[in-house]
Structure formats: C-alpha cells, structure tokens
C-alpha cells in the first residue's frame, strides 16, 4: 500500500472546467472520502487516479512514483490501483469465484487465496459458485471489493459504492467495507455525495465544490470548523443567522452566543443539536413551532423566531412539542462565526 498525492490536477471537457488545480494527499493506509454534490468533478478525479482519463495539468503520485504528469501517463493496468465502481459492475458471465480471482495470474488463482478473500470480504464460502445476479446488492458490493483487493493493489478507489443500496443496507454495507479495508491495510479513496457516509466512514474528508477542493480535514474537525457557511450547511443541516461579534460574544436573534471570532458583523452558524427547547420562562428567546418530524428516538423541530427567522432544532423525542406551540430556545456550546466581509 502507498500514499496517493495529487497536485495541481486540472481537466476540462470542451469549455467546461471540471477540475481546477486540485491538490489532495491521501496518507498511507487511510480512508479518504471525496465529498461533493453531483457534477462537482469528484468522479472525474477518481478516474484520473485510476488512469482511465488523462489530466491536462498536474501530477498524480502513488507512493514516490509519478504515474500521471503532463508528459507521461502510466497505463491503467500497470498502476496497481483497484477500482470498485457504482453497483459493483461484476462480470455477469463469470461466477463469484472467477470474478474475485480475475485479476490474479493463472498460477495464483488457488482455492486458498479464494477462501482468504471470501473471508476478508466477510462472504460465506457457498457464494463462490453463484452468479452475480443471484447475490443481494450488499453481497455484490463485497464481491467487487474482494475482486479489487485480490491482486494486492497499492490503492483502492471506490466510486459511490453504496448509492445503489437501499437506506437500511447502506450503513451496514459501509461499515463492512471499512472493516474489510482496515483489515487489508488498504489506502482507499472513496467518492460520495452522501455526507453521512463520508463523515461516518472516512479518516479524512475532502469537500469538493465546482471542480475545487475547498476543505480537507478529519470528520470531527470538518463538522466543528467548516471553512465557510456553504460547506457548513452541506455537512449536516445548520441554521445561519447574522449578528455582531463583540469580545467573544455574538449578538444574534438567537441570543448572545459564545464564539471565537474577531469583532464585527458576522454570519453565525448554529447546529440543530445545539438548540435546546425549554419552557418559555427559562429562556430569553422564544419561537413558534411550525413543523415537527418524529424519528422515534429523535425529533427534528422547525421553528420561527419572533422576527420570522427559521430555526431547526434536533433533540431527544422525550420532549416533543406540538405544532403551533410557543417554546423557549437555548443554544448550548460555542458556535462558529464567519466575518461578513469574507463573503
């Protein structure tokens, strides 16, 4: 396994600039998620690393070997980069065993290696003789992963690997894939548009927007300190209110909030789980409940403040208000503020 380093990668299709000087370092043995809305260029980035598409500028290095630069490009089959596309793309004419062993030289396609890979991918041994269409979506995904891992590649690329699975299966499939990758000690680059997936699975998340990488951070750092309000709202819902920062306190319609920012006008970010609903008398800020979405253990409450500002709160369903009820609001913990001038 080896680290992946991209520097200054650019790519256009016709007049459209898909990738604009992208830099990214994927540390050895880590799982990095590239997160962005569809059309932000993340899949093109993956295909450049795989060697299916040439970049126009910049370099790609696997370990200390440059595989892609303006002058030269190593062919895809010589890069040693495993690829797990959407929906797995298993070879439909081959059974599971032949799919998994496809990338190994003839002499190394042994029963023991197959058994190792099935175990690694947490697949029961009796699926080996089945056809891809007889497997569930999650199983197909794990066979595709085992197939990609079989030749012991330096890096594994996963392109929206869970997008075809239904919601319930996604979470468990994601965790299984992460376990498998950890076990194999693989360096992995995962492309997704689902922030929950990126935050829960990756060691490092790179947020992409319109062909650029806007922030690279660990999931916790990314959630706590998004680089701008757009990133903040993209990574988990957030209420953004304007206010004035004075001496570590932001004065907003949600009250006076603790903040670490310079004095001046600012946009203040409040996460739904920071908003606590209390009795009217307990808080200085009041709001009217407009909509209640009940999720069993959790409840998401939409409110309007007196001045009409919409606010979202998320909390335990032990305290579920009624629609139309007037409640008090408290904001817990420090908030993040962005100076207004930066916008």
């Amino acid at each position: 396994m080896s680290a992946v380093t991209l520097s200054g990668i650019s790519k256009s299709y016709g007049a459209q600039r898909v990738l604009d000087s992208v830099d990214l370092h994927v540390p050895d043995g880590s799982l990095t998620a590239v997160l962005g809305p569809s059309g932000c260029g993340k899949t093109t980035l993956l295909r450049i690393v795989a060697g299916f598409v040439r970049s126009e500028a910049g370099t790609v290095s696997l370990g200390d070997r440059v595989v892609e630069s303006p002058g030269t490009a190593l062919a895809a089959e010589k890069r040693g980069v495993g690829y797990v596309p959407q929906e797995g793309a298993l070879f439909p004419h081959l059974d599971v065993a032949a799919n998994i062993l496809y990338g190994l030289p003839r002499g190394r396609r042994s029963k023991t290696r197959l058994a190792e890979l099935l175990d690694l991918a947490e697949l029961p041994h009796d699926v080996a003789r089945r056809s891809p269409h007889e497997l569930s979506g999650g199983q197909q995904q794990r066979v595709a992963l085992a197939r990609a891992l079989a030749p012991a590649p330096r890096v594994i690329l996963l392109d929206e690997p869970f997008s075809s699975l239904d919601a319930g299966l996604r979470v468990s499939a994601g965790r299984a894939v992460r376990r498998v990758l950890r076990h194999a000690g693989a360096t992995a680059l995962l492309v997704t548009h689902d922030q929950g997936e990126a935050l829960s699975l990756a060691d490092q998340v790179a947020v992409m927007r319109a062909g650029r990488v806007v922030q690279v951070d660990s999931p916790t750092a990314l959630y706590a300190h998004p680089v701008d309000p757009e990133t903040a709202t993209f990574i988990g819902g957030a209420t953004v209110v304007s206010g004035q920062v004075r001496g570590g306190v932001a004065l907003t319609s949600l009250g006076d909030l603790t903040v670490r920012a310079e004095d001046g006008p600012a946009r203040v970010l409040v996460r739904p789980e920071q908003v606590r609903l209390v009795e009217l008398a307990e808080a200085g800020v009041h709001g009217t409940v407009t909509e209640v979405s009940f999720y069993g253990a959790q409840v998401v409450v939409h409110l309007d403040l007196a001045d009409g500002t919409p606010v979202t709160a998320r909390g335990s369903s032990a305290h579920t208000p009624e629609s139309g009820e007037k409640v008090g609001l408290l904001v817990e913990g420090a908030v993040v503020a962005y100076p207004e001038s930066s916008q």
């Binding site: 795989a50 060697g51 062919a75 089959e77 070879f91 990338g103 197939r147």
Partner: peptide, 13 residues
C-alpha cells in the same frame, strides 16, 4: 458496458 472494461484494466489486464 465500458465500466466492465475499466474494471478489467484496473485489475492489470
């Protein structure tokens, strides 16, 4: 579909 050929190339073929 071409994606199958991509996968094959990525497996060293």
């Amino acid at each position: 579909p071409p994606v199958l050929e991509d996968v094959s190339r990525s497996l060293g073929q």
